[in-house]
Simulated scan of single mutants.
Amino acid sequence: MKKLLLVAMMAFGLAVNAQETSFGITGGFSNMTVKASANGISASQGASGFYVGFFADIKVSEKFNIQPELAYTASFKNDNSTNVITMPILAKYYVAENFSILAGPMLDLIVDETGDEFNSFGLGLAAGAGYDFTDNLFATARYSFGLTNRVENAVVSTKVDYFQIGLGYRF
């Protein structure tokens, strides 16, 4: 948790020093998929929900921005829920006037009690696209591939992926 907060403070510290920085809120649909594999056999289970958070949009050049975010994500399956804090730090490149591609690392921290063998902190690689409807309103879609093995058992590999699609508003 301390590592996540330190990285968040550093990312938003960069935003304060940038010349053209805007801030905003974002939210939408989220799907979390847990994938487990062992001995050539794999299984996955998904849970859908929502995410809501805030971001900084740091203009680096005419076509390139950095967009760190901090969001709360909730996923639901049957009577169970999973609560996660996600922090993507995305490079945003405008390939056209209003259309951008996004890529970068995504940190996540499962805040629910997970048990001793489960690693609640994870690192993923996110990629996606965004479209600016106006200077303030935009849509984004992205997928984050989990890179961190969440089970501290050498036999089983368990990773968490996220798909998110939503809207954002810049102030």
Rank of each mutant, 00 (worst) to 15 (best):
M1R: 09
M1K: 08
K2E: 14
K2T: 12
K3C: 03
L5D: 10
L5R: 02
L6D: 02
A11P: 00
F12G: 03
G13H: 04
V16R: 12
N17G: 15
N17K: 12
Q19K: 13
T21P: 06
S22H: 10
S22F: 04
F23K: 01
I25T: 06
G27A: 03
G28E: 04
S30K: 08
T33W: 10
V34C: 09
K35S: 15
K35P: 00
A36G: 10
S37N: 13
I41V: 14
I41Y: 13
S42A: 12
S44C: 06
S44D: 15
A47C: 11
A47L: 08
F50N: 04
G53R: 12
G53T: 03
A56G: 09
D57I: 01
S61L: 08
E62L: 06
K63T: 10
N65L: 06
I66F: 12
I66S: 08
Q67F: 02
E69G: 05
A71C: 10
Y72D: 11
A74R: 14
A74C: 09
S75A: 15
S75L: 07
F76M: 11
F76C: 03
N80C: 04
V84D: 00
T86S: 13
M87L: 02
P88N: 05
K92S: 14
Y93P: 07
V95H: 07
V95P: 09
N98G: 01
N98L: 02
N98R: 13
F99R: 01
I101M: 10
I101L: 15
L102G: 01
G104Y: 00
G104T: 03
P105H: 03
P105W: 00
P105F: 00
M106R: 14
D108W: 01
D108K: 06
V111E: 11
S120G: 05
S120Y: 00
L123F: 12
L125D: 02
L125F: 11
A127I: 09
G130C: 03
G130N: 01
D135N: 15
F138E: 05
A141M: 10
S144A: 15
L147S: 11
L147N: 07
N149W: 03
V151H: 02
V151L: 13
E152Q: 11
V155G: 06
S157N: 09
S157H: 04
T158L: 10
D161N: 14
Y162M: 13
Y162A: 06
Q164V: 02
I165H: 09
I165Q: 07
G168Y: 09
G168S: 08
R170Q: 09
R170T: 00
